[in-house]
Write a protein that binds this DNA or RNA. Structure first.
Lengths: 163, 163
DNA sequence: CGCGATTCCATTGCACCCCATATAATGGCG
DNA sequence: CGCCATTATATGGGGTGCAATGGAATCGCG
């Protein structure tokens, strides 16, 4: 049944092409993400933080304090990832974690003075990174917007049978 | 020194914008990659493999046997990542690892019959994934090519002072 | 052949990343 | 007020991802 040239939904040759690593969009995203983390390392190491930690700080520099849940929404990470990451930031004196007085379930993440100072020291990072990427600004913006649209469209999984 | 409107290389307002998570290309790539791994999970779990394992198998289905180093080049991963991953595939009966007779330093990764059979069972994965992504094919291809160009351009880091 | 340099992989240690589950606090209802 | 469903983090375990190190095999030069 699979040997005839029948073809089904997708021709065999097209399927062959779909499976090639070089043709896969998802692998391109995966590789680019790994590479980006590697490129950030030498920029962030002098600051004593990792790339996911830097992302959490970008969110906190925009608005602080924020709860673990709010950070998770902003970064697309769950508490199993954020809790230890934030504890490491706290151990390094960059943030403090305290329970919200009005709702003891929530944990507020607040920048310390050292965490605030870090913002200035990290100011050059985005520009250095843009230089490393070597992409025309317009193309980078288009790429970013396409990825954001892709991500946003998938945040709410298509259930398929709700009305 | 930071309060004057001097500006240096980048105006303060532009820097503000560069730091916003929503404006960052790298964060868009990072989020998309995490999300993609999550989307693959339900497709690959019935096959008993993870997304990085699936990528390694895609490479092996294209050509097998291959050494650890060749797989690392194809996937952009180093032996510290691949060795345990391949050992798990071996423990699950999907590949075998054996030293190359002509060069005992190399380890050849070969598909078992079960690993070959898995290829057919995974045939629907790329199509299902494309459906999930909900991107027009042409746009997906453009996105992939831009990412590949970005990744390829950065594989060899610009040293700047060799010569 | 001998020996240092190189190559290839394995190991270790640290930091994610996520699912499933646990725990504690809150809110609603009788 | 008690009880239960819900909400917000924490914990545990499996699986990456990578830098640094180690060890065995090979290469290269004399």
């Amino acid at each position: 049944m699979a040997e005839k040239k029948k073809g089904g939904a997708v021709p065999a040759e097209a399927l062959e092409q779909l499976c090639r690593l070089d043709n896969q969009l998802c692998f391109a995203v995966y590789s680019a993400s790994n590479l980006i983390t590697r490129l950030y390392r030498p920029l962030l190491e002098p600051l004593g933080i990792t790339y996911p930690q830097y992302l959490a700080l970008l969110a906190l520099w925009e608005r602080s304090p924020r709860t673990v849940g709010e950070l998770g929404d902003a970064l697309g990470l769950d508490s199993g990832t954020l809790t230890p990451l934030l504890k490491r930031l706290e151990a390094n004196g960059i943030v403090v974690r305290k329970r919200a007085p009005e709702d003891e379930r929530r944990v507020l993440i607040e920048l310390t003075p050292a965490g605030q100072k870090l913002r200035a020291r990290a100011a050059s990072v985005p520009v250095e990174m843009l230089c490393k990427l070597q992409l025309p600004l317009e193309e980078a913006a288009r790429l970013r917007d396409t990825l954001k649209r892709l991500t946003r469209g998938l945040r709410e999984p298509p259930d398929g049978n709700e009305g």
